[in-house]
C-alpha cells in the first residue's frame, strides 16, 4: 500500500475500500464485452486494479455497459442497476451509449443512455482496448476521490425524471418505483 494514502485510508475508509474493490456486475450488454475476457485474464489482469466480475448485482458496485443498448437490453439494465447497492458506479463503453454511435438511426437501439440511467464516465473507442478500460477505471478512482462519481445520488435526486423517461420508452413498467417519485428533497 502506498504510504501517502495512509491518511486517506484513516479519514475515509469506506470511500477508499469502494475505490479499490470495484466489483463488476456480470452482464454482457453489448459487443464491447469481447475485450473484458482479455482484461480479466492473465495478460492484462484487471484484478490488480481491484476489478473483478461477480455473480450477482447485489454484490457489485461497478456496472460496465459495454456498447450499444437495445430496447430489450435497457430493461434488464435498469433492473440490474436498481438492484445494485449504493455507492455504485456506471461506466459506458464506446460511442454508442453516448449518442447512438453508428446505430444512430436504428429503430431498436436507444441513443442517449444517460436519459434513462446516470452514467459516471465514458470510455472512447470501438471497442475500447484493455488499456483504455484501465485508463477509464483509474480515472474513475480520481472521480471517486473527488466525489464526482455521484451518479447514484443523481439518480435518487432526479428519480421522477428518470422514471418518466423510462415510462415514455416502455409504457407501463413491470416493477414499482425504486424511490418515492414525489417530494424528494435534495441531499
Amino acid at each position: 500500500m502506498d504510504r501517502r494514502q495512509l491518511i486517506k485510508w484513516l479519514k475515509e475508509p469506506l470511500k477508499m475500500s469502494n475505490k479499490y474493490s470495484l466489483h463488476v456486475v456480470y452482464f454482457c450488454t453489448g459487443c464491447g464485452i469481447i475485450e473484458i475476457p482479455p482484461s480479466i485474464t492473465a495478460r492484462w489482469d484487471a484484478e490488480r486494479f481491484g476489478v473483478k466480475p461477480v455473480a450477482t448485482p447485489r454484490q457489485a458496485n461497478l456496472f460496465l455497459i459495454t456498447g450499444y443498448v437495445s430496447l430489450k437490453t435497457l430493461k434488464p439494465i435498469i433492473r440490474t442497476y436498481e438492484q445494485m447497492p449504493a455507492p455504485k458506479y456506471t461506466v459506458a463503453f464506446g460511442s454508442c451509449p453516448i449518442d447512438g454511435g453508428m446505430y444512430w438511426d436504428s429503430y431498436n437501439t436507444i441513443n442517449h443512455l444517460d436519459k434513462y440511467i446516470p452514467i459516471d464516465g465514458y470510455i472512447a473507442g470501438c471497442m475500447p482496448r484493455p488499456e483504455a478500460v484501465f485508463a477509464g477505471i483509474t480515472h474513475l478512482w480520481t472521480l471517486i476521490d473527488e466525489g464526482k462519481a455521484d451518479g447514484y445520488k443523481k439518480y435518487r435526486r432526479n428519480y421522477s425524471q428518470y422514471r418518466s423517461n423510462q415510462e415514455r420508452l416502455y409504457g407501463e413498467l413491470g416493477w414499482p418505483p425504486r424511490f418515492e417519485t414525489e417530494g424528494l428533497e435534495n441531499e
Binding site: 444512430w104 438511426d105 423517461n165
Partner: peptide
C-alpha cells in the same frame, strides 16, 4: 422510415436536468 421513427420516439425524450 427508421430515421423518422428514431427522431419521434427517442430524440423527443428530454435529457435529465439536475
Amino acid at each position: 422510415d427508421t430515421r423518422k421513427y428514431v427522431e419521434e420516439e427517442f430524440e423527443s425524450i428530454p435529457p435529465v436536468e439536475d
